[in-house]
Design a protein around this nucleic acid. Structure first.
Length: 447
DNA sequence: TTTTGAGTTGTTCGA
DNA sequence: GTCGAACAACTCAAA
């Protein structure tokens, strides 16, 4: 009988600190093989931004593991079978993945006879755990939040003190060569970068978060989303350093929104692509045409919308306030189904989380949980004036408007210099399309 | 079972 | 410029 040797399969938990599943693997094996499986099906769908971020995160993880991370491309079942045989693995450990794709992948693995020891997940309270007294799940955020607070969560655990790693064969070090696209500046990936950024946010902008988070022209948000997406930091680590006070409370609620949407998707897996409120599938929509292309390219002629869409392409990330503005514009002004926008986001966002993305879109579209009232249609001009009064955000991303100062930047059509540098003419009239949206929603009501 | 209050993020209109 | 009301009706959670 050979010595017990465990496999730790890294998936969405690319970190060493506060990783109970990794500790479980260490407990069970005299040594541990650290593995990441490159799923080429996902890679085919993913945009270059996501791939570059992941490649960078894997390099960072490998550094922490002193160059002993195995990376193998292929189908999870085949790779695991092969690795288990070749390295004489006696147990496989993972953190539980709740996203629909991960759930079905893990089911295939287990159906193939590979037992996965699951410890913890990427959430402070795993999806499915927060329940109403009658045992059913919540569909509204605020009651979920109150129950979530009551539920509580475990304290973070330390990084392993001692980690005996198996050295993988050179042929099992298939790190992808995915480069950041030219002209794009992605935020730094990896556990160290995540912790450093969290520390900086905690001692900095967190104290002004309630107001600052809504101003896209300043660095008022934490930018933890890409790190949370790949588990470079665990939400427990974040939550455990929050204090009482309004700004911290608002930030905690944002973390719990992530937990809520994961819970909703867990109970209704089809809502990653389909309507949470099915009657909205009967609404009259327009096919994605050249207007959709203009939206993607950031050439709608609405400064705040265009700035957001261009930030997405420049950084693989977009400020949350602006995500709502561009999403509302696509659905309510262009009358295009939310899935088209959600797919575009998933391609470019380095924080591409299917639960938060799909349900964020559905919220804006009015077909999600806690959906906004039908009459809540964002005015891209007013939103710009309110949250980017000086136009700092717009000037950063829309060079055709960089010569404009003050509030006039929000309405280039009203300014003699608005089109001096060939800024796009408005592709639609917001006031008119707002009425069109209300009319189409009224049709739905009459049915 | 029935009732009641509440529900992330807004805009427009008229006084 | 500011302010309050109106904008549907419905679903959800909890008493």
């Amino acid at each position: 009988m050979s010595a017990p040797r465990s496999l730790f399969w890294f998936r969405r938990d690319l970190r060493l600190a506060d990783n109970p599943a990794l500790l479980a693997a260490i407990d069970e094996g005299e040594d541990v093989l650290a593995l990441f499986i490159l799923d080429l099906d996902i890679a085919e769908r993913a945009g270059d931004y996501r791939k570059a971020y992941l490649a960078s995160s894997l390099n960072a993880l490998d550094d922490s593991l002193k160059g002993k991370l195995a990376v193998i491309a292929g189908d999870a079942v085949l790779v695991l079978k092969d690795v288990i045989a070749r390295y004489q693995i006696t147990s496989v450990h993972v953190g539980q993945d709740f996203a629909p794709y991960g759930v079905s992948r893990d089911a295939r693995v287990e159906a193939a006879g590979i037992h996965l020891n699951k410890t913890g997940s990427g959430y402070a309270v795993s999806p499915g755990r927060v329940r109403k007294p009658d045992g059913t799940n919540y569909r509204v955020y605020t009651p979920f939040y109150r129950a979530w607070l009551t539920h509580g969560w475990r304290a973070p655990v330390q990084a392993p003190k001692k980690l005996e790693l198996v050295s993988p064969a050179p042929s099992d070090r298939q790190f992808p060569d995915w480069q950041t696209p030219t002209g794009v500046e992605l935020q730094q990936a990896g556990e160290k970068a995540a912790l450093k950024r969290w520390q900086a946010f905690q001692t900095g902008d967190l104290s002004e978060y309630e107001v600052g988070r809504n101003i896209p022209g300043i660095p008022g948000t934490s930018r933890m989303s890409p790190h949370l997406r790949w588990g470079e930091i665990h939400p427990r680590t974040i939550l455990s350093s929050l204090q009482p006070g309004a700004d911290h409370d608002v930030f905690r609620k944002e973390i719990v929104w992530r937990e809520f949407y994961a819970d909703v998707l867990h109970h209704y897996p089809h809502t990653s692509r389909d309507y949470y409120a099915p009657q909205f599938s009967k609404l009259r929509y327009d096919a994605p045409d050249e207007k959709f292309q203009a939206w993607c390219a950031g050439k709608t002629g609405y400064p705040m919308v265009d700035a957001g869409m261009r930030q997405l392409k420049a950084e693989g990330w977009m400020h949350n306030r602006v995500r709502m503005i561009v999403a509302s514009f696509l659905v309510k002004d262009l009358h295009i189904e939310w899935q088209h926008g959600a797919s575009h986001f998933m391609k470019y966002l380095i924080d591409n989380d299917v639960a938060s993305n799909s349900h964020g879109w559905q919220w804006t579209a009015g077909c999600g949980t806690d959906a906004s009232p039908y009459y809540r249609i964002f005015n891209p001009i007013e939103q710009g004036k309110r949250f980017d009064p000086e136009g700092n955000y717009i000037r950063t991303y829309v060079p055709e408007l960089s010569h404009m100062v003050g509030a006039e930047i929000h309405e280039p059509w009203s300014s003699p210099t608005g089109y001096l540098h060939d800024y796009s003419i408005r592709i639609v009239d917001h006031a008119q399309e707002r009425l069109e949206s209300l009319a189409r929603l009224a049709e739905l009501k009459d049915q």
